[in-house]
């Protein structure tokens, strides 16, 4: 399978199998079980990355897991930000690390969002749940270079009003007049004044030219599958749709095979895939 990586995707400057030490500069609670860590490399050499890439983060003595980078790639030294849901042993240990704690960092790894390819086109950013975190660097890049893009629509779905990620930032983006932002939740009580319904219902309501649109999609796999179908129905071609896949990544350099998806390794050939190259892989059970 030939898979497309954004040409600007960064590669590790150091031995990719050897963790570098970073320190937690800031820890912020986003949701009840979601934390954002701002890291700083201990050796002072910033870790350059492209939107959509991930790092392998180690809590020493506990373990290592892949985490997407959720910071601003243009922010000098300060963009090494990871947003983590406390769902397991390592993610829980990461979420509990306070300022000054040591973290092992390998990366950045993988392909990136099509920031360059999207220039000159409308951009639809379709995010579900914590999938907004890997898309945030793309949003920063697009907004920082706004004049290079056509219409920009950010369509975000969350489980409920209390589980809307990066709420303050979403409110900031909504105040901008050059981006269309729509938020919906799956479940709400009647005191919620916003939209209720799955994120795919936002697509027909958004304004974009499907023939000249690049769509980026991130969220739970089933949400991405339905999101891609809804985008296709709206007229966006599979070759203009990019999805970020998630599998159990271990080595992160395409050696161990833990993250195999069909003939691809998600760590090396992804996590960002163009939808025409994913083909029907997402509909194959237990793949």
């Amino acid at each position: 399978m030939a898979l497309v990586a954004e040409k600007g995707a960064a590669v590790p400057a150091h031995d990719p199998m050897l963790p570098r030490v970073a320190r937690v500069r800031k820890r912020q609670r986003d949701l009840a079980d979601v934390w954002t860590l701002n890291l700083e490399m201990e050796d002072g050499e910033p870790l350059k990355f492209a939107p959509g890439q991930f790092n392998m983060l180690t809590v020493f003595g506990v373990g290592e897991i892949p985490i997407s980078i959720s910071g601003d790639p243009a922010q000098d030294g300060g963009g090494l930000v990871h947003t983590i849901r406390d769902v397991g042993t390592v993610s829980g240990a990461l979420a509990r690390l306070g300022p000054g704690s040591a973290v092992g960092v390998r990366g950045p790894f993988g392909t990136s969002w099509p920031v360059e390819e999207a220039k000159g086109n409308d951009v639809v950013i379709l995010a579900g749940g914590l999938g907004l975190a890997p898309l945030r660097p793309m949003i920063y890049s697009v907004l920082a270079n706004r004049k290079h893009y056509g219409k920009v629509a950010l369509l975000y779905g969350a489980r409920g009003p209390g589980e809307i990620l990066f709420r303050a930032e979403l409110e900031q983006w909504r105040r901008r007049l050059d981006i269309e932002l729509q938020v919906t939740v799956d479940h709400a009580e009647t005191d919620w004044y916003g939209s209720v319904g799955v994120v795919t219902t936002l697509i027909p309501r958004a304004t974009f030219d499907p023939q000249n649109t690049v769509a980026v999609v991130c969220g739970p796999e089933i949400m991405m599958r339905f999101g891609a179908a809804a985008l296709r129905k709206a007229g966006v071609g599979d070759q203009s749709m990019y999805l970020s896949m998630e599998r159990s990544m271990k080595c992160a350099v395409g050696l161990c095979g833990h993250c195999q998806l069909g003939s691809a390794f998600v760590c090396r050939d992804g996590p960002v895939f163009r939808n025409d190259q994913l083909g029907s892989l997402m509909t194959v059970k237990e793949l």
Partner: peptide, 16 residues
Amino acid sequence: LQATRLQILDVYGTRS
């Protein structure tokens, strides 16, 4: 109906 199925699946809450 499809949207309701997705709502029932409660898909959010697994990505990290």
